[in-house]
Design a protein around this nucleic acid. Sequence first.
DNA 1: GCACAAAAATGAACGCCGTTCAATATTAAA
DNA 2: TTTAATATTGAACGGCGTTCATTTTTGTGC
Lengths: 198, 198
Amino acid sequence: MTQRRQTKKEDLRNRLIAAGTELIQEQGLKGLRARDIAERAGSALGGLYTVFEDLDALILAVNSGTLKRMEAALSSAIQSSTGIEDAFADLSIAYLRFALSDRNLWFALFEHRMPEGVAVPDWHLAEHAFLIGFIATPLSRHMPDAGPQDVAIRARTIFAAIHGVIAISLENRFIGITPERLEQEVRTLALLLARNVT
Amino acid sequence: MTQRRQTKKEDLRNRLIAAGTELIQEQGLKGLRARDIAERAGSALGGLYTVFEDLDALILAVNSGTLKRMEAALSSAIQSSTGIEDAFADLSIAYLRFALSDRNLWFALFEHRMPEGVAVPDWHLAEHAFLIGFIATPLSRHMPDAGPQDVAIRARTIFAAIHGVIAISLENRFIGITPERLEQEVRTLALLLARNVT
DNA sequence: GCACAAAAATGAACGCCGTTCAATATTAAA
DNA sequence: TTTAATATTGAACGGCGTTCATTTTTGTGC
């Protein structure tokens, strides 16, 4: 019955990640406290550190889960897309809607910083790759003479442009804008990019 | 001689902002400590709190200075620009070069967050406006039928797209890219946007 | 079932940080 | 020079992430 210990630890791990996810979504990454996470997960403060090296490791686990849910949402959004214009527009709008509905979790993906001198682990960087992949796939058909590296760089530029528009808007910097108008701006930019690649 | 007190306080304020600016540029916003700022400014720890309400207020003052220097750099970059394509390309490249040379200070402009429930003061939000203004001015000539609000929204979208490409690159997310290639991507996007507005 | 060793969970305690404030030092006025 | 007003100081406070001695739970051999 040495199985029991395994499952209990996994259960605690899941409860900690769930608690962290809820707290980030409710209060933002900046307000996240180890004591609140432990309390909501129903464990003592020290329990958190039997599962995770430190708070940063738990945040990476939360971000991992967010990326997985986002990948599912985007994947489902392009099921019915045919051409590159459809694909870019559908991806962009799905990305925007995910950001709006999971605002603080989405922010946490990009505003979390490791301590000075500590790099984000490679396995976690790799989890972001699907964002580029979704764009690179339709894009490569429109850049037949380009190598995979060039396609990836251009895909990243396209992702970053759309991402930037959404990020600046959700940060409430500069003028406010309604969600409808934001969707319009994002769609316009997505179509503009789709029509002018190669 | 009640003047003396004024100038001493202003001097302390300047030294604190200078120290904060240096420390952010050297170690990033995340590593900023009140004790380090006070030490480098040559004052006791408490001195910081006789000038600034709290650390956030000092960071806003540092960001204010960064915005002023950025405004000067961008302003100088478009002196010789003639058409909208020149203007967008020159602005974008100048923005990129500023971000590269003042990396951590530039990041601090966008990654700083006020405490939960506290808004960024209006006077500081207003200081960001020139970024939109630089784009809106040439843009409005190409959108003669649009109202000022529509021009501002489109200018913000254009700024955000360029900003996004630079931000994602400097965060080292996704694939790495050389500065030369990044300049090429930014210039390509700037020209694409300039040629397809209205 | 029971005793007992091994492992895990606990929460008080530690060190660090932003912030405060009683005590000290400086400045301006008399 | 004296004295009141003001400014500067850094020890102390409360809150945080993290650690670790202690307690509790789990697995094993009888």
